[in-house]
């Protein structure tokens, strides 16, 4: 008999406790980030879209060799005499193959890194061509893509931005 009533009391207490918790949580602020208006800044070590700085790159090919999915390609620049110099002629990253593993950044010998993962997580592609981003020396833009049909370089369309996060240098 005592066990019966103590069970009732215990269960009622548990139910009321649960209600108290939900009531408390109802008046706490919500954790929602209103995404298109507010954006969460990722952690420092977040591996977002790859960025490349042609001015820093010494065209050592280490990132191409480090890449496990073979998504990076580059070509050395040449001086007037046709000798290779430590600059890239062009550099391309295929985001369709990239698996965001940071091995290229770790292999990069320059300081600051000339290829690195930004904090940009808004990587959206409308066409397959858009996945291949090209960088060329003295090209005044970052990350255009080459449209194979039109044979032109275009801005990515469906993407909000791979915005120009400045290279990490002084």
């Amino acid at each position: 008999m005592i066990g019966y009533f103590s069970t009732i009391a215990r269960n009622s207490k548990a139910v009321l406790q649960g209600h108290w918790i939900t009531l408390k949580y109802m008046f706490k602020p919500s954790v929602t980030i209103h995404y298109p208006d507010e954006k969460l800044v990722p952690f420092e070590r977040y591996r977002g879209a790859l960025l490349f700085d042609a001015a820093t790159c010494i065209s050592c090919n280490l990132c191409v060799k480090a890449c496990p999915s073979n998504c990076i390609a580059l070509e050395n620049a040449k001086n007037e005499t046709g000798k290779k110099i430590a600059k890239v002629e062009w550099y391309s990253i295929d985001f369709g193959k990239c698996n965001f593993c940071r091995l290229c950044e770790e292999a990069c010998p320059t300081k600051p890194k000339s290829v690195w993962h930004s904090l940009d997580y808004e990587v959206i592609f409308v066409k397959r061509d858009e996945m291949v981003r090209c960088w060329k020396k003295d090209f005044p833009f970052v990350g255009k893509y080459f449209d194979r049909l039109a044979q032109t370089f275009n801005d990515p369309q469906g993407q909000v931005n791979i915005h120009e996060v400045q290279p990490r240098r002084n």
Binding site: D94, V132, K136, F141, D155
Partner: peptide, 19 residues
């Protein structure tokens, strides 16, 4: 992998104004 290289015509476009 062979990435397409920009030809001379489009090599120096105007810098696009950011939206």
């Amino acid at each position: 992998m062979t990435a397409p290289t920009p030809d001379e015509k489009v090599a120096a476009p105007k810098p696009p104004t950011p939206k």
